[in-house]
Simulated assay, not measured.
Amino acid sequence: MGKRQREEEQAFEQEEREADAHAGVILPSQIRNKCKRSEAYAKVKQEKKKIKKQKIKQRDAAEKEALELGEVPPPRKIPRTIENTREEDETLAQPDDEELQAEEGADEFSNYFKHDITPKVLLTTSQANSVPTRKFCQDLLTVIPNCFYYKRGTYNLKQIVKYAINREFTSIIVINENRKEPNGMLVVNLPEGPTAHFKLSSVVLSKSIKGHGKATRHQPELILNNFTTRLGHRVGRMFASLFPQDPNFRGRRAVTFHNQRDFIFFRHHRYIFESKEIKEKKEKLNKVDPKKAKEKKKQPKEEVIARLQECGPRFTLKMMSLQHGTFDSKYGEYEWIHKPDMDTSRRRFFL
């Protein structure tokens, strides 16, 4: 919401208050007694609920009438959300942006999408790691194909980068921890970078998810949602470079990175097809013959239903920085870095 729109809404609310004051209507906020003020507020709230229900009924009736007459139903109002009132961003990627397509055709990830390189990922932890972090790494090994876990030991990250390049690894994932809980993820693309640092939160292991499924060895289908800016495109391509670009649909596995308000939600599912009996409505006895009713009971109808089963793990990422080249904390150049000043507006997003 822009400043001008906010000022217009405030002016409109002020006009309503003045109109109520001229009409002699006492607002709940003007009542000094706390008990009476809360009672008045509850009544106003209840009246608003009734008006809202009446509007919904009228809308549904109008839609039903239009469909019966074969007309187009009246369009529904789009609710105002933080997402659809986001601040305008010059870096929003357009589908016909030739410059962006040319950049993506020659960037560090282009070889993965041309099938010239097969992803090979090295997974490790911080030097001091605990059981929850190692269990989280075990879950990641079931998600990412061609991923190998190496114990960190006393090696620093620059040594690990050199080792991984010599062993023809394409990416490194480092899971950091704090107070014996995983709290950070570092993704390094090899051999030229970039390096992304993410804050890791809301980690739920596979065993903790109720009714979780077991992932097969089939290569998963990758779903990237809502990476709309140029920076978002780059981060999405980095995630895509961790997975082979030829999914095996027989495995029915789907890995999702969903971006919402610059928080990246990770989910891992498998979809299942099940046959379910259809329960028919009881018809009147006068219209149905008893012989036909018996035949119907003998031949139950079935319907195929698709549903999702979560395999896990489940976690949330928030990007803190994106660095040129491989990891270098002293002399590295940053493409993008998160600063406290960026959080002043709730409707400003970067991915």
Rank of each mutant, 00 (worst) to 15 (best):
M1T: 11
Q5C: 05
R6V: 07
E7Y: 07
E8Q: 13
Q10K: 15
Q14R: 07
E16N: 08
E18D: 12
A19I: 09
A21S: 14
G24S: 02
V25I: 15
P28N: 01
R32F: 06
V44W: 05
V44I: 08
K45P: 02
Q46K: 10
Q46A: 14
K50G: 10
K55W: 00
I56A: 13
K57P: 02
R59E: 14
D60C: 12
L67Y: 06
L67Q: 14
L69N: 08
G70N: 04
E71K: 10
E71Q: 12
P79V: 03
T81G: 04
T81E: 02
E83Q: 05
R86M: 08
L92H: 04
P95E: 03
P95Y: 01
P95D: 03
D96C: 07
E99S: 10
Q101I: 08
E103H: 08
E104V: 02
F109D: 06
Y112V: 09
Y112F: 15
I117T: 14
I117F: 01
L123R: 01
T125S: 05
S126P: 08
A128G: 07
A128N: 11
A128K: 11
P132I: 02
T133M: 07
L140W: 00
L140S: 04
T142D: 12
F148L: 13
F148S: 14
Y150E: 13
K151L: 09
R152T: 09
R152W: 01
N156M: 10
N156C: 12
N156I: 13
I160V: 13
V161D: 00
A164Y: 00
N166G: 15
R167E: 15
F169V: 05
V174E: 15
E177S: 15
E181Q: 10
N183V: 11
L186C: 10
V188E: 00
E192G: 07
G193W: 00
T195V: 03
S201C: 06
L205K: 08
K207R: 13
S208P: 08
G211V: 12
G213S: 14
K214Q: 12
A215C: 13
T216F: 04
R217T: 14
L222D: 04
N225D: 10
F227T: 02
T229I: 04
V235Y: 00
V235T: 04
R237K: 08
F239H: 04
F243I: 04
A254Q: 13
T256L: 06
T256G: 04
N259F: 00
Q260I: 05
Q260V: 06
R261H: 10
I264T: 11
H269L: 06
K284I: 09
D289W: 05
K291A: 11
A293V: 05
E295H: 07
K296C: 07
K296V: 09
K297H: 05
K298V: 12
P300S: 09
E302V: 08
E303C: 06
A306L: 14
R314S: 14
F315E: 02
F315C: 04
K318S: 08
M319F: 00
S329A: 14
G332K: 00
G332F: 00
W336K: 03
I337F: 07
H338Y: 07
K339E: 14
P340K: 05
D341A: 12
T344N: 11
T344M: 09
S345F: 11
R348A: 10
F350V: 15
